[in-house]
């Protein structure tokens, strides 16, 4: 097993985080750091963008920042 594969950037993982609480893009990127997933920065950005487009989360502004969230 790859040492860098302890966290996986999947739609299900993103869904779980966004159902729990609203998050910014930066919050999400912190959850899926490249050193934890083994993906490159570019892959992380691309995959996360695809997942967010599919999930189509609701958005709200908290402390002047766009946050994404999903209702259960």
């Amino acid at each position: 097993t790859p040492s860098s594969g302890d966290i996986q950037l999947t739609e299900e993982a993103v869904r779980r985080y966004l159902t729990r609480k609203p998050m910014t893009t930066k919050d999400l990127l912190k959850k899926f750091q490249t050193k934890k997933t083994g993906l490159s920065s570019e892959q992380t950005v691309n995959v996360l963008a695809q997942i967010l487009k599919r999930l189509n989360p609701d958005r709200k502004i908290v402390h002047d920042k766009m946050h994404f969230y999903l209702k259960e």
């Binding site: 990127l29 920065s41 992380t44 950005v45 691309n46 967010l52 487009k53 958005r59």
Partner: peptide
């Protein structure tokens, strides 16, 4: 580094811009 995180967040937001 935090600047790399900032760059990634900016790239991600740019990717999502059309969509948002």
């Amino acid at each position: 580094s935090s600047s790399e995180a900032d760059e990634m967040a900016a790239a991600l937001e740019a990717e999502l811009n059309d969509f948002i």
